[in-house]
Simulated scan of single mutants.
Amino acid sequence: MRLAPLYQQERELAKLEGKLEGKLEGRLEGQRQVVENLLRVRFGSVDAQLSAIIEAILALPPEEFTPLLVQSSRQDLIARFSNN
């Protein structure tokens, strides 16, 4: 009968991990929306070239990628973040 508390503890831990994962995914999705919106405002739309660099941009912390998105040209962003 000592397994019941361990099982309950594992279930609670799994629930907490799920909640944390959901919060992280939500935060990342929010950051993705911010990046896409900034690109759309700056360049009119998010085409295939800009879409291709979003993941690389998101690898930076927001305090680094925000000024880059506001100040850099489209060509500079593509050159910096593309895998070519």
Rank of each mutant, 00 (worst) to 15 (best):
P61L: 01
L28I: 12
S73D: 15
A79M: 11
Q71C: 13
V70S: 11
A14M: 14
V35W: 10
L68K: 10
R32K: 12
Q71A: 15
L20G: 08
R2M: 13
A4M: 09
R42T: 07
R42N: 08
G22H: 09
Q8M: 03
V35H: 04
G26P: 10
F65A: 04
S45I: 03
Q8C: 06
Q49R: 11
A56K: 08
I53W: 07
T66D: 02
V35M: 12
R74N: 08
R80C: 02
I78V: 14
E63T: 12
R32M: 03
P5G: 08
P61D: 14
Q71I: 09
L39D: 00
S45C: 14
L13R: 15
R80A: 05
D76A: 05
G22L: 01
S72F: 00
G30N: 13
F81V: 00
R40K: 15
A52F: 03
E64D: 15
R32S: 06
A52R: 08
E25T: 02
S73A: 12
K15E: 06
F43W: 10
G26T: 10
R2H: 14
G30P: 12
L3N: 14
G30C: 10
R42C: 07
S72P: 00
Q49K: 11
N84K: 14
L69M: 04
E25A: 12
Q31T: 05
Q31V: 03
L20N: 12
L6I: 08
R11S: 02
Q49T: 06
E63A: 11
L24P: 09
L58F: 11
R27N: 15
E36V: 04
R42S: 07
R80P: 00
S73C: 15
A48I: 05
E10H: 11
Q71G: 11
R42F: 02
N37V: 04
S51C: 03
S82M: 13
E63L: 01
E36Q: 10
Q71K: 15
V46P: 11
G18C: 02
S82Y: 13
V46R: 07
Q8V: 02
L20H: 14
D76C: 00
P62R: 05
A48D: 07
L68Y: 03
L60R: 01
V34S: 04
Y7A: 15
R27I: 15
L58N: 09
S82H: 10
V35G: 10
L69G: 02
L39A: 01
L38S: 03
L77Y: 00
G26A: 11
E21W: 04
L77E: 00
F65C: 03
L3Y: 08
Y7H: 15
Q31L: 15
A52T: 00
I57H: 01
L68D: 00
L69I: 04
I78L: 14
T66I: 13
L38K: 12
K19P: 04
P5E: 12
P62A: 11
G30W: 02
A56D: 09
A59Y: 02
D47I: 02
K23P: 00
L69Q: 09
E36W: 04
M1W: 12
Q8L: 11
R11D: 08
N84P: 03
L20F: 13
V41I: 15
